[in-house]
Deep mutational scan, measured.
Amino acid sequence: NNDALSPAIRRLLAEWNLDASAIKGTGVGGRLTREDVEKHLAKA
């Protein structure tokens, strides 16, 4: 759900053309954090 994404995370996902549903969020309530996105990018 994009409503739970911060503007910074939305921008990062758009910049790298990533799908938020493909990344497991570790923040409060399962929210994506910058670290989650960076770890996903490191694996790719």
Score class of each variant (00 low, 15 high):
P7S: 10
K43Q: 13
T33K: 04
G29R: 07
N17A: 07
H40L: 11
R34E: 11
D36M: 02
K39L: 13
E38T: 08
S21M: 09
L5G: 04
N1L: 13
T33L: 07
E38D: 06
A20Y: 06
A44D: 07
L12D: 00
L18H: 04
D3R: 10
D3L: 11
K43M: 15
L41Y: 09
K24G: 05
R31N: 07
A22K: 12
R31H: 06
A42D: 07
T33D: 01
G29M: 08
N17M: 06
G29N: 12
E15M: 15
S21K: 10
T26H: 03
N1G: 13
D36N: 02
L41W: 08
N1V: 14
L5K: 02
G30T: 03
A42H: 09
H40Y: 15
K43E: 12
A22P: 03
G25I: 04
S21A: 12
E15A: 13
A42W: 11
T33P: 00
P7M: 14
K39T: 10
A4Y: 15
G27E: 01
G29L: 07
G27Q: 02
A22Q: 14
N2T: 13
I23L: 07
S21V: 07
K43F: 13
V37R: 00
E15K: 15
L12G: 00
H40I: 10
K43D: 11
L13N: 00
L18P: 00
E38Q: 09
S6D: 15
L13P: 00
L41F: 07
K24A: 10
D3Q: 12
A22L: 14
E35M: 10
L41M: 08
I9F: 04
A8I: 10
K39W: 11
D19Y: 06
R10V: 10
L18K: 02
K24Y: 10
T26V: 03
D19F: 05
R10W: 06
N17R: 08
N17W: 04
D19N: 08
L32A: 01
N2R: 11
H40Q: 05
R31F: 06
E15P: 00
T26G: 02
R10T: 07
A8E: 15
N2G: 12
D19R: 05
K43N: 12
K39F: 09
S21W: 09
L12Y: 05
E15N: 07
T26M: 04
N17I: 03
R31Q: 13
N2P: 13
D19M: 08
V37T: 00
A8F: 12
A8V: 08
G25K: 05
N17V: 04
L32E: 00
G27D: 03
L32S: 00
V28I: 13
N2F: 08
R11Y: 09
R10S: 06
R34T: 09
D36Y: 01
L5T: 06
R11E: 12
G27I: 02
E15F: 15
P7V: 11
V37S: 00
N2H: 14
A14P: 01
E35V: 08
G30H: 04
E35A: 12
R34N: 07
G25D: 02
A22I: 10
D19P: 07
K43Y: 12
R31I: 12
L41T: 03
D3W: 04
G29Y: 05
G30F: 01
R31D: 05
L41A: 06
V37I: 14
E35I: 08
E15L: 15
L41I: 15
A8N: 06
L12Q: 03
A14W: 14
E35H: 09
T26F: 03
R34S: 06
D36G: 00
L5R: 04
R10P: 00
L32Y: 03
E15I: 15
A20S: 07
V28N: 08
G29E: 06
K24F: 09
K43V: 10
R11A: 14
A14C: 12
K43L: 14
A42T: 08
I23P: 01
L41K: 04
N17D: 11
T26I: 04
R31E: 08
K43A: 14
A4C: 12
G25P: 08
I9H: 01
D3Y: 04
E35T: 09
R31A: 14
D19A: 07
L5C: 11
R31T: 14
G27R: 01
R11Q: 14
D36L: 02
G25F: 03
A4T: 12
A8D: 15
I9Y: 02
N1Y: 06
R10N: 05
T33A: 01
K43P: 05
E35K: 11
A42C: 14
K24V: 15
N1F: 08
R10F: 06
G30N: 05
V37D: 00
A20V: 08
A44R: 13
R11L: 11
D36V: 01
H40M: 07
D36P: 01
T26C: 03
H40R: 03
A4S: 12
H40V: 10
A8T: 09
L13Y: 01
T26R: 02
D36S: 01
A4W: 15
H40K: 03
K24H: 09
K39D: 08
R11T: 08
L41G: 03
A20M: 06
H40A: 14
L18A: 03
K39N: 13
R34I: 15
S21L: 07
A4M: 14
R11D: 12
L18E: 03
A22S: 13
V37P: 00
G27N: 03
E35Q: 11
E35S: 09
K24I: 14
A8K: 06
D3M: 11
N1P: 14
D3A: 11
P7F: 07
L5A: 05
K43C: 13
A20I: 08
D36H: 01
I23N: 00
L32G: 00
G25W: 04
L32Q: 00
A4Q: 13
S6H: 07
R11I: 08
T33N: 03
L12E: 01
G27W: 04
H40C: 05
G29P: 03
R31S: 13
I9V: 11
S21R: 09
A44P: 06
